[in-house]
Every structure is written in structure tokens, then in C-alpha cells.
């Protein structure tokens, strides 16, 4: 409880610092939102011409897009500290964290909160809501609960990716850009039904990097869609938990990484 209130205190201070430059903050918020609007327009234009993609309509894809974008926007908002961890190490700020009687994972989390991601988040929510209004999903309590868990699981998945990228700094000092292939590339890829891709590609993003659990399986569940490429019902049902499990595993990886930390400028 005390950790939570301290976390909120940290975050409040960060948000206050960002709001100090209100004009530039508003500008960033708007540019974030408008860039992501263009994002989805591209998909919509594609569907204007082809109407359907492997049995998926535009609004079904809108659901895919909405879910994955919400998850990524929230992850980038809350886990910014991991995203910029390389500079934390470079400035010696991570040394400062190690001399405090608090966990390092916790402190990096509490280090930054990027409020301007609200721009991206609201665009993603709008796409999701519009898509939903065109779809005939019968929202039961079970489905609402499932959606909630899926959003949390997906957010955890993206945070986990950022954690892996950050933890790589313990060995290389220079963060690996490769993680961006999975985050930004993953979003691009995940904006379309995974069934359109090659078999090996599908398997990679299901079993190795479980991106399919973020939005593809949850969309199948919400739409009651059965697909040859889709997994069995039980996998689809448990998909939201995979992201949470993934984050727990990356947290262990993080812990192991900290013991290899070399600091800078001995």
C-alpha cells in the first residue's frame, strides 16, 4: 500500500513537470493523436478497395487494431522508464536507484509517466468504439471481463518487450534497437489478422513472441470467430494470461540482468 502511494507520488511529480510546459505538451498530445489517425486511415483505404481480407471485414480489423493500439499506448505511457533506460544508465541515474531501499524494477517504473500518450490512447479507443458500433458483438459480462483482462495482458506483453530491451543494457550499455522490430513492427503486423501470414511467421508470433495473444486470439473470442489458423478454444480463452506471464518472466530476466550491471566510469 505504501509502495503504491509512493508510486502515485512519483508519477504526480512527473506529470507536474510535463505540464510545466503546457503549450508544448498540448502540441505533442495533438500530434500523437493525428499521426495515429493517419495510421488507421491507411488500413481503411486498403479495405475501401478490397472490401475483405481473408474473411475479415474492415470493422473486424478495426477491433484488432483498437485492442493492440490501446495496449501499446498504455505500455508506452507507464513504462517509459524502461523505454529510455539506456540514458538512465548513461547518466548514472541507475546507480542512484541502486543506493535506495527500493526495488529497481519498481523505481524504473516510477521514473517516468508519459502523459502525452493519451493522444494515441484516445485515438485507439475511438477506433475500437466505432468498430464495435459496426459489429454485432453481444456483450455479456463474461466478454467484458475477458476484454478487460485481454487489455491488461496485452499491455503487460508490450511492457515485457520494453523490459527485455532495457535489460539488454546490462550487457551492451547500448540498448538494442531490435526490440523495436517487435514493438512497432508488431503493431503493424498485428493490425491485420495473423491468418494472412506464413505458417512459420504465425508460429513465431504465437509461441516465441506471443503477439497473437494480444489481439488476434481475443478478437476471435469476442467475435465468436472460428479460423483454421486459430488455436483451440481453450488457448483462445487463456490468451489474456499469456501477456501477464510474459511480463513475469521478463521481470526475472531483469533481476538476473541487474546482477550483471557494470555501472559506468569505474
Amino acid at each position: 500500500m505504501k509502495s503504491l502511494s509512493l508510486y502515485l507520488h512519483f508519477i504526480t511529480l512527473r506529470i507536474r513537470a510535463q505540464m510545466a510546459y503546457r503549450f508544448s505538451f498540448t502540441l505533442e498530445l495533438l500530434s500523437q493523436a493525428s499521426i495515429s489517425v493517419i495510421d488507421f486511415l491507411m488500413i481503411a483505404i486498403l479495405f475501401e478497395r478490397f472490401k475483405q481480407l481473408a474473411n475479415w471485414t474492415l470493422w473486424e480489423v478495426g477491433l484488432l487494431y483498437g485492442i493492440i493500439s490501446v495496449c501499446f499506448a498504455v505500455a508506452e505511457m507507464v513504462a517509459r522508464g524502461f523505454d529510455t533506460f539506456q540514458s538512465l544508465v548513461g547518466r548514472g541515474a541507475f546507480d542512484n536507484m541502486l543506493i535506495r531501499p527500493l526495488g529497481t524494477f519498481y523505481q524504473v517504473f516510477a521514473h517516468e509517466f508519459q502523459l502525452r500518450r493519451v493522444g494515441k490512447l484516445s485515438q485507439a479507443l475511438v477506433v475500437f468504439l466505432i468498430a464495435n458500433s459496426h459489429l454485432d458483438i453481444s456483450w455479456t459480462l463474461g466478454k467484458l471481463g475477458y476484454l478487460f483482462l485481454a487489455l491488461i495482458g496485452g499491455t503487460c506483453f508490450f511492457i515485457g518487450l520494453l523490459v527485455i530491451g532495457a535489460a539488454s543494457c546490462f550487457w551492451t550499455v547500448q540498448s538494442i534497437e531490435i526490440i523495436n522490430i517487435f514493438t512497432h513492427g508488431g503493431i503493424f503486423m498485428g493490425s491485420y489478422p495473423i491468418s494472412i501470414y506464413q505458417r512459420w511467421f504465425r508460429h513465431f508470433f504465437t509461441f516465441i513472441v506471443p503477439l497473437a495473444c494480444v489481439n488476434y486470439f481475443p478478437s476471435l473470442f469476442l467475435l465468436n470467430k472460428i479460423e483454421p489458423a486459430g488455436a483451440s478454444r481453450i488457448v483462445v480463452q487463456f490468451a489474456p494470461f499469456i501477456g501477464i506471464l510474459f511480463l513475469c518472466l521478463t521481470a526475472l530476466f531483469w533481476k538476473w540482468g541487474v546482477s550483471h550491471y557494470q555501472s559506468t566510469g569505474h
Binding site: 511529480l13 513537470a17 547518466r91 546507480d95 542512484n96 541502486l98 535506495r100 531501499p101 526495488g103
Partner: peptide
């Protein structure tokens, strides 16, 4: 580390341990 941290004080002259914009 955390138990130790509670009972030691650390100052590295080259950089501050305080929060830059606070």
C-alpha cells in the same frame, strides 16, 4: 541491497542524487 541502503548514505561528487527538476 535494500537493507544495506537503509543504513548508509552515499554522495558521488560528480553527479547529484537529487531529482533534477524538483
Amino acid at each position: 541491497r535494500k537493507e544495506n541502503a537503509k543504513r548508509i548514505g552515499v554522495v558521488f561528487g560528480q553527479r547529484s542524487h537529487l531529482w533534477f527538476d524538483l
